[in-house]
């Protein structure tokens, strides 16, 4: 009797292994679910809600002008002290808007406190660098470059924020150039 139950146990065990093999075999023939990064990137819809490094929103009347009024709310509220805003002598607009991405924890405190909605999250997933200096971004310059590159593309399928951040297609292959050219030595050159 004991021997019979031992044989039965082993048969049951063998069956459980077969079931497992069937499942993995079925999945073996299903299409790939992963994305092979340098050759292929995730769909931009997936990035619509991704919070990447900060960028300045386009101005309401003149697109290349920032909405920032240099009130320093963001710089004071930032837990990582990664924002430097210097006010110009003539008006309210800033002359320098430096953002140190190495210190940023993407918490969104600056975006939430901004009274003019001048700051927003970008969707730059592929921002990498081999030097720290290249990650200190000059956002005013970045804004100019973006406006020069073209008008705002149609906003992607619904974002949770009312302010729709513009969809930016990722640079596939190779590290994206840091937008701010703040004395960033090219590691290769």
């Amino acid at each position: 009797m004991k021997m019979l139950s031992a044989i039965w146990d082993n048969l049951k065990g063998l069956y459980s292994l077969l079931v497992g093999m069937c499942i993995t075999g079925r999945y073996f023939f299903q299409p790939l679910k992963t994305v092979h990064f340098p050759r292929d990137v995730v769909e931009p819809e997936n990035l619509a809600s991704y919070r990447g490094p900060l960028e300045l929103a386009r101005g309401k009347t003149d697109e290349s002008k920032t909405r920032c009024i240099s009130c320093q709310m963001c710089a004071k509220g930032c837990p990582g002290n990664c924002i430097t805003v210097v006010k110009s002598k003539e008006g309210k607009n800033p002359v320098t808007w430096l953002y140190d991405f190495t210190l940023c924890c993407l918490c969104g405190a600056c975006v939430e406190v901004c009274p003019t909605a001048a700051i927003q999250f970008s969707h730059r997933l592929y921002l990498v660098s081999t030097s720290r200096e290249a990650l200190v971004l000059d956002l005013l310059k970045d804004l100019e470059e973006r406006v020069a590159a073209g008008p705002l593309p149609a906003a992607g399928a619904g974002t949770p924020d009312a302010k729709k951040p513009e969809a930016r297609m990722p640079d596939a292959g190779g590290p994206q150039k840091a937008a701010g050219g703040s004395a960033a030595p090219d590691p290769e050159g």
Partner: peptide
């Protein structure tokens, strides 16, 4: 459950 939990190993 079929793949892991019921597996004899």
């Amino acid at each position: 459950k079929a793949l892991v939990t019921d597996n004899v190993i």
